[in-house]
């Protein structure tokens, strides 16, 4: 019986050592990540940057390519999420308007593409 107790304690010590090593001695450092892993507030700012740049460039294809770095969702959906976050946290109206403008363009584009495919 004492052996089994010792055995279980040894396992627990092993697990503790593994976790201690992983969490304290050598914790995970995030490097070489991609934009799709960004936290929601950074993602929203990224979308805002795309919207700001779009106001000047008027290049929807370029905006779509930039948004594609944020993941596989449809571009309008990404912008929509950003708008919702911005509204929730009280971003400036001018910023929300710019994102809304980009969303309108993207939504229109996606609608055209859907109707173009039989």
């Amino acid at each position: 019986m004492a052996r089994w107790i010792g055995f279980i304690i040894a396992i627990l010590v092993g697990v503790s050592l593994g976790l201690g090593y992983g969490w304290i001695v050598s914790p995970v450092h995030y490097i070489d990540t991609s934009p799709d892993t960004l936290r929601i507030d950074f993602r929203t700012d990224y979308v805002l940057m795309v919207a700001e740049a779009y106001q000047n460039e008027k290049d929807l294809g370029l905006a779509v390519r930039r948004l594609a770095l944020l993941g596989n969702l449809p571009p309008s959906e990404m912008v929509s999420q950003a708008i919702q976050f911005a509204q929730k946290y009280g971003y400036a109206e001018a910023d929300i308007t710019q994102m809304q403008s980009l969303w309108n363009e993207l939504h229109a584009l996606e609608t055209r593409l859907k109707t173009a495919v039989p």
Binding site: G6, F7, I8, I9, A10, I11, L12, V13, G14, V15, S16, L17, G18, L19, G22
Partner: peptide, 10 residues
């Protein structure tokens, strides 16, 4: 053995 098994489980 228990220690190695614990680390492996972790």
């Amino acid at each position: 053995t228990g220690l190695v098994l614990g680390i492996a489980l972790g």
